[in-house]
């Protein structure tokens, strides 16, 4: 939530290494996209934590409603056959 005269809030996502996902690491205020990226670099990658940065205006993020958590996420609970650990295999082929 920002007031009229404030710089908008941006969420920052950092990819630490090629092959990994971008991870949310926090937010900052910036007046425009270029500033947001530069500040994200200055604030969130001081310790060589980054190879790539995304910034998104916080008000552009669409989030699932926590009230709907049951509806959205519980059905996954009983479909355990989606997880590899569900399948017990003999030791000799368990590396699959």
């Amino acid at each position: 939530m920002t007031t009229q005269n404030e710089w908008p809030l941006w969420e920052v996502f950092v990819r630490t290494k090629a092959g990994l996902d971008h991870k949310h690491c926090g937010s900052l205020h910036a007046a425009d996209p270029k500033m947001a990226i530069q500040l994200a670099r200055d604030v969130y990658t001081r310790r060589q934590e980054g190879s790539s940065l995304w910034v998104v205006r916080s008000d552009q993020i669409v989030a699932s409603d926590p009230g709907d958590k049951d509806m959205y996420f519980d059905p996954m609970e009983d479909k355990v056959y989606r997880h590899p650990t569900f399948y017990a295999l003999p030791e000799s082929v368990n590396h699959m």
């Binding site: 939530m1 920002t2 007031t3 005269n5 404030e6 809030l9 926090g26 937010s27 900052l28 205020h29 604030v43 001081r46």
Partner: peptide, 18 residues
């Protein structure tokens, strides 16, 4: 930077940096 992370955390509770 720490101040910044914390303001960001506080802002998630419905207040603004200003």
């Amino acid at each position: 930077g720490h101040g910044l992370y914390l303001y960001a955390a506080a802002e998630t509770l419905g207040t603004s940096r200003d």
